[in-house]
């Protein structure tokens, strides 16, 4: 109980409050910045655990001959190959500035194996996955954006104004409006919407989130919420 609950609780509260107080004390204002480095290093070390989990899950699939175990083999193979060529900087030439440093070269260009994998496997795969969104946006527009009530209609109407106002279609549709009514042209209307309604809505959301973050942090720092440690109520 002491080792698994009390000490972690103390660690969290002491370190959190110390960093909170440090924000107000001049010589220590950089503590928070150093934490970012500390965190990144811990996360990089902890990636060993992630690798372990990935390997374990896929090896289990292969050894059990689960459905699709061949794909688990692909995961294992691509993972290990990329890891070995990347960590070993295999096929990487030295950098121009320090030809003497054997591991000083960059592996960004496609003439290194790691760079090749990045350019011809990772980039097309991830950016095509990202591009699928255009299709999902279309199907969501057809299916989900229905003027069911006033609230939904407002959402729809605004999306309309922005969609049209941000292409040449807006100019064609409302460009004929005379100068004194130029405020009603779609491209100008979309700017008003952004500057007035969107600004107000976003401000409220941002302020609300700030309070939510403050309360969540305080729940942790005051020891009110311990469920992140596992089991608040028992």
């Amino acid at each position: 109980m002491v080792l698994t609950r009390l000490i972690p609780l103390w660690i969290a509260i002491v370190s959190g409050v110390a960093i909170l107080v440090s924000a107000f004390i001049r010589p220590m204002e950089s503590w928070g910045e150093n934490f970012t480095d500390t965190f990144n290093v811990i996360a990089a070390i902890a990636s060993v655990l992630g690798a372990g989990s990935l390997l374990k899950a896929n090896l289990a699939k292969v050894s059990r001959r689960d459905a699709g175990w061949g794909f688990a083999l692909v995961v294992l193979g691509t993972f290990l190959i990329t890891l070995v060529v990347g960590l070993g900087k295999i096929g990487v030439h030295p950098s121009h500035d320090f030809p003497q440093a054997d591991f000083g070269g960059k592996q960004e260009s496609a003439d290194t194996p790691f760079g090749w994998i990045y350019e011809f496997a990772m980039v097309p795969l991830t950016s095509t996955m990202f591009a699928l969104l255009a299709f999902y946006v279309a199907s969501a527009a057809f299916r989900a954006f229905r003027a069911k009530n006033l609230e939904a209609s407002l959402l729809l109407g605004t999306a309309f104004v922005i969609l049209l106002g941000r292409t040449f279609a807006g100019v064609v549709l409302t460009g004929w409006l005379p100068d004194w009514a130029s405020g009603l042209r779609l491209e100008n209307l979309s700017v008003y919407v952004m500057q007035v309604f969107n600004t107000a809505g976003n401000r409220a959301i941002i302020i609300g989130i700030a309070l939510g973050v403050a309360a969540t942090s305080l729940r942790i720092l005051l020891g009110v919420d311990r469920s992140w440690l596992g089991g608040g109520e028992r």
């Binding site: 509260i13 002491v14 370190s15 959190g16 409050v17 110390a18 107080v21 004390i25 220590m28």
Partner: peptide, 10 residues
């Protein structure tokens, strides 16, 4: 714990 944190920080 909070107090300890404050003291360390200060």
């Amino acid at each position: 714990a909070i107090l300890v944190g404050c003291v360390i920080g200060w």
